[in-house]
C-alpha cells in the first residue's frame, strides 16, 4: 500500500509534502512530485499538508485519477528505489501520462 500524488500537483509542486515525509520517499519530476510506492510507509503525513489536495491513500483515489497509482508504479519501475530523495538530483523526465497533460497556466 502507498500514498499517491495525483493530477492536481502537476505544475504546482508546492513541496510541503517533502517537509513532512519521515522517510524521504517523495521525488521531484519536472512537472509533478512522485511517491516511491515501495519506500512509502503509509504514514499519511503528506496528505493533509498538500495545498491542492493532490495526495491520496491508494484506496481512496478518486475515479478520475485512479490511473495515478499505475503512473507512479510505472515511473519507479524504471527509476528504482534510490533510498531517499534528498540525496538525488530532481528527475529529468516525467511519466508520459504526466508529460502529456496540458500545461496549467497561472490563472487557471
Amino acid at each position: 500500500m502507498t500514498y499517491v500524488i495525483a493530477q492536481p500537483c502537476i505544475d504546482v509542486k508546492d513541496k510541503a509534502c517533502i517537509e513532512e515525509c519521515p522517510v524521504d520517499c517523495i521525488y521531484e519530476g519536472p512537472r509533478k512530485m512522485y511517491i516511491q510506492p515501495d519506500e512509502c510507509v503509509d504514514c499519511g503525513a503528506c496528505e493533509p499538508v498538500c495545498p491542492v489536495e493532490a495526495v491520496f491513500y491508494q484506496d481512496d483515489l478518486p475515479a478520475d485519477w485512479a490511473d495515478y497509482l499505475g503512473v507512479e508504479r510505472d515511473f519507479f519501475a524504471t527509476v528504482g528505489a534510490p533510498g531517499g530523495a534528498s540525496s538525488q538530483p530532481p528527475l529529468e523526465t516525467d511519466h508520459p501520462a504526466v508529460a502529456g497533460e496540458p500545461q496549467r497556466t497561472a490563472s487557471s
Partner: peptide, 16 residues
C-alpha cells in the same frame, strides 16, 4: 487499520 499519528516514525519501522 494502522493508527499512529501521520508522519510518525513507527510507520517506517513497521514497513521495514
Amino acid at each position: 487499520e494502522v493508527r499512529w499519528c501521520p508522519g510518525c516514525g513507527d510507520y517506517a519501522v513497521l514497513a521495514a
